[in-house]
């Protein structure tokens, strides 16, 4: 009961903060919608999509990129939460969380779950708009995809948390965008099928396969069509566990996460 109360408090705070910063929702949706409406319109003709699993027939480019754009929302959200963790640490409010008597691992996982909940809400808001724009999957797919979305949000949130434990200053965060977010995004199957990448460059294709975001996107893609991709699940789940473990290690006081921050 005590743990549930604590988790509920963390979730409530994240929801309240999200509600206070409604522009976050708008900006989170604008990016994928630009890809869906503008980019896809321009590249539809140039990038023909062959019949590849899980699709059983030819699909439009818009349909292809919807799972990838769902992943992108969660990728940026994970990094946003990383940014807010660094900000909280710089401003000192992280200390309120870390001096709670609850186990630190529980607090960090609760924060991750709360972030994953908000990410998933944003993805469903995107699905609704895509549906209105006539980019649709089977209705049951929107339900089946839920666990895949939560797992992906947890993996990316944990990656953000891990990064935040190593980023010393807010100013260093631009590096995360250049060296983590964009490579993860472009070296994945979010915008183009991997066979297209393989046609162009074998080593880029291998990098894409190495990228956990590729597998998260494929997990979402298959789930949206009520299919199961075991390899994608195995990679995404393993990376989630590894990132969470490393993030908890990163926030261990033995390592002195706040060492550089106390002074006085």
């Amino acid at each position: 009961m005590v743990y549930f109360t604590c988790f509920l408090g963390i979730l409530t705070r994240e929801l309240l903060r999200f509600w206070q910063q409604r522009s976050r929702l708008i900006s989170a949706l604008v990016r994928p919608l630009l890809w869906l409406v503008v980019f896809a319109a321009g590249f539809r003709a140039a990038l023909g999509v062959a019949i590849i699993p899980p699709y059983e027939t030819y699909i439009t480019y818009e349909v292809y990129i919807v799972p990838g754009l769902a992943g992108v929302i969660m990728l940026f959200n994970g990094m946003q939460s990383s940014l807010s963790m660094v900000y909280d640490r710089e401003m000192g409010s992280m200390k309120v969380l870390l001096t709670s008597p609850m186990p630190r691992s529980f607090l960090l996982v609760s924060k991750l779950l709360a972030g994953a909940f908000i990410s998933t809400l944003q993805v469903y808001a995107f699905f609704v708009i895509a549906w209105i724009l006539d980019v649709q999957a089977e209705p049951i797919g929107y339900l089946v995809v839920l666990p895949a979305l939560v797992l992906t949000a947890l993996m990316l949130g944990a990656l953000g948390l891990l990064l935040s434990s190593f980023i010393k200053q807010l100013e260093n965060f631009a590096g995360v965008m250049n060296f983590v977010v964009f490579p993860m995004f472009f070296l994945s199957s979010a915008l183009y099928p991997l066979w297209k990448m393989q046609e162009s460059s074998e080593w880029l294709y291998q990098l894409c396969l190495f990228n956990p975001f590729t597998h998260a996107v494929e997990l979402i893609r298959f789930a949206m069509y009520s299919q199961f991709n075991a390899q994608a699940l195995a990679v995404t789940l393993s990376c989630t566990i590894a990132f969470i473990g490393l993030a908890i290690w990163g926030y261990d006081p033995k390592r002195g996460m706040v060492r550089r921050k106390v002074g006085g």
Binding site: T5, C6, G9, I10, T12, R17, M91, V96, G264
Partner: peptide
């Protein structure tokens, strides 16, 4: 604990800030 730097969430109300702390302590509603 009262830290040197303010650790309140400026965008939340006074009661919401206190409620958040209470939940971190596991206090019932």
């Amino acid at each position: 604990i009262v830290f040197q730097q303010s650790t309140l969430d400026l965008d939340l109300t006074v009661a919401q800030n206190l409620g958040y702390h209470a939940s971190l302590q596991g206090m019932p509603g």
